[in-house]
């Protein structure tokens, strides 16, 4: 385990814990920002420079700004929400279910990771040019479907914002 991974893993885990424990939504968004930046550094470590850049521009740039915008729009000062569910059974059940899910995924995915054979990295792995090649040859149909999905989301967003529903 190298020091680079440890630093950014601790940063990501700390940010994630802060996200779900912060009392207000705005500090929580800052915790999420920490997670995004740490993950982008980890992507660089995994030879995925384009994903790292997109992580910063799309997630930390676009999505988080939208979330912060809505937080600013919706947070009324007189509404004081408690941090967690008031019902104790909810909290306990949620924590138990989450811990169970984590354990299950760790066990299951570790099994998979042993099955997957490790290949030697080819020359230029993770180069954006190769990624674009894959995008416009092998995954062209999926790419077009993603753009249709974005168009649908765009129309839905405009409709929901405009009409009095």
């Amino acid at each position: 385990m190298d020091i680079y991974f440890i630093i950014f893993a601790i940063m990501a885990l700390g940010g994630a814990l802060f996200t779900i424990t912060a009392k207000d939504a705005l500090p929580s968004a800052l915790g999420l920002l920490t997670v995004f930046i740490a993950l982008s550094a980890l992507y660089l470590h995994l030879h995925a420079p384009l994903i790292a850049i997109f992580q910063v521009t799309i997630y930390a740039g676009a999505i988080l700004v939208l979330v912060v915008f809505v937080i600013m729009l919706l947070m009324t000062p007189d509404e004081k929400l408690e941090a967690a569910q008031k019902n104790m059974a909810y909290r306990i059940m949620g924590a138990v279910l989450g811990a169970y899910l984590t354990a299950l995924t760790v066990v299951g995915v570790k099994g998979i990771s042993e099955l997957i054979s490790a290949n030697e990295l080819p020359e230029g792995f993770g180069h954006p040019g190769l990624l674009g090649d894959l995008f416009f040859k092998k995954y062209l149909l999926h790419f077009e479907m993603a753009s249709v999905l974005l168009l649908v989301a765009l129309i839905a967003g405009i409709y929901l914002a405009k009409k009095r529903i």
Binding site: M1, F5, A9, A12, L13, A16, L17, T19, I20, A22, A25, S28, A29, L32, V35, L42, L46, V67, V70, I71, L74, L81, E82, A83, A84, Q85, K86, Y90, R91, M93, G94, A95, L97, G98, A99, L101, T102, T105, V106, V109, K110, S113
Partner: peptide
Amino acid sequence: QYVILSCLLFGIGAIGFLTRRNALILFM
């Protein structure tokens, strides 16, 4: 190490989703 980190992050997200009551934090 990456698989375990990602499982932990997923679990933290799931716990947050199941226990918080602020809709925006659920979103995050």
